[in-house]
Design a protein around this nucleic acid. Structure first.
Lengths: 252, 252
DNA sequence: GATTTTGTTTGACATTATAAAACAACGTTC
DNA sequence: GAACGTTGTTTTATAATGTCAAACAAAATC
């Protein structure tokens, strides 16, 4: 498998541009690449033809082209969490029969952006677009727990602990201890804290920056799923969130 | 100026991927490009070496690589003063407790495009999107002073000096002397000229063309910040604007 | 206006990319 | 389970192509 020299060189030229180096003269490039001007010139012109390089009208200096932005955005779209996660939610539900959700953080609430309904159970509460509290749901907890301390602090500033069931966490102290437990475990659980008779588990999904991008959850009816089954579901859930995170470019 | 065939082909391969075509098999590429598999293979491997192409571990299919995202973001950053400046505003406010602003010129007024509020003071006037006069504010002055004489002349043509406080500059002569003072200093000050009890300092941010792209300011309450503290803030401000300008590609 | 420093073009040569064929690794089909 | 189509990858010879040097042109600097 031969490496194409000219292509290799062209891509190396693109790498000369960084945060601090916006523009380069052709001679600078040729000296830094240790190539002759004419060689660099040909490479640049070809790159320019495709919009990967642009030339400043007056100074004649070269800079990165808009095509890179275009392609980058294309990639970003593809990384769209929802479309990536969808097949994993579906596979999970297919395999377990349990309802799965995908939730992102918006303001101080979670928002359902996807849901795959299982046959066994009908979870009422959730619906795509609907909002869910951070303190009473597994997804909310997962979305909160795996952030930087200052971000968590910001979320909890003036946070109101609306009571959903008799088991809902209703104050900051209790929530903070719950969050640290979640951090240790790597996943969050909501045991009838949001909806009576319903128990959920949720785990974080990380993006390529290592930020929590979303949370995936599985919702079960207490009447249908016992403790051992539930912990098996958690194991499976953690597997899924890990692979999804990887697909988003997350490297631990 | 010869076009480099291999590079040209490689870039054409990248163009095969679009919104709908995320993954391609090597044979699909070779048929669509009308090239032999081995040729495509070499090109792909070289692209992959630089992260412009990735290969799916199990399916063996090829897709666009993260490097494109990285380069695209690089470009985006450069285009967006606000996102670049944001962390600097935040850092400044974090360090000093004072409110900072980012303002750009629009017509004959400034427009707040970002604001980071300090705990110590509550500056009423500013709000993102709100407009501010050139003659009565530090940011306005800074946006004006560091332009070419003919540009300044154009701005001041038919300019109306709206009175904001008893200290507001109200005529062209006074404004011009103020501007030349600012040019000498490298920064602008507004001492209760826009809002009673409030004193601000502002400095210009330059883009890669050497043009004034924005102004950054720090706003203080006279009751809270004395002269020595204020001049320290100015020093810090100038440091920040200098680094931001560099990030935008400015080379003096 | 002369001189240096740029970016661009030209053309000959040898390096390098290319294509064909052979190979290997899977899947599928009978 | 063997034979056949698919794949992706490697090898190798050939000639097409990228490369360099030198010449040219156009700015910029003195």
């Amino acid at each position: 498998m031969p490496i194409i020299q000219s292509l290799d060189r062209a891509l190396n030229i693109l790498d000369l541009f960084d945060e601090y180096t916006t523009e380069l003269k052709i001679t600078e490039i040729s000296t830094r690449m240790d190539l002759h001007k004419s060689t660099v010139h040909s490479l640049l012109k070809t790159l320019q033809l495709h919009g990967y390089i642009e030339q400043d009208a007056e100074s004649g200096k070269y800079r990165l082209g808009m095509r890179l932005l275009e392609k980058g955005q294309l990639l970003l779209q593809r990384l769209d969490i929802r479309s990536i996660a969808r097949k994993h939610l579906a596979a999970f539900t297919d395999q377990t029969g349990q309802t799965t959700h995908l939730v992102i953080l918006d303001g101080k609430e979670g928002v359902y952006i996807d849901k795959v309904e299982g046959q066994k159970a009908a979870i009422r509460y959730s619906r795509i677009g609907r909002r869910v509290p951070l303190h009473s749901s597994a997804v909310g907890k997962a979305l909160t727990a795996f952030r930087k301390p200052e971000e968590i602090e910001l979320l909890l500033k003036n946070y109101s602990y609306i009571v959903q069931t008799s088991l809902t966490i209703t104050n900051k102290e209790a929530f903070l201890t719950e969050l640290s437990k979640i951090q240790r475990q790597g996943y969050a659980v909501d045991d009838q804290e949001n909806e009576p008779g319903v128990r959920c588990a949720a785990a974080p999904i990380y993006d390529h920056n290592g930020q929590v991008a979303a949370a995936m959850s599985v919702s079960t009816l207490l009447s249908a799923v016992d403790d051992t089954q539930f912990s098996q579901l958690i194991d499976l859930l953690l597997q899924e969130t890990e692979t999804i995170s990887k697909l988003l470019g997350y490297r631990p």
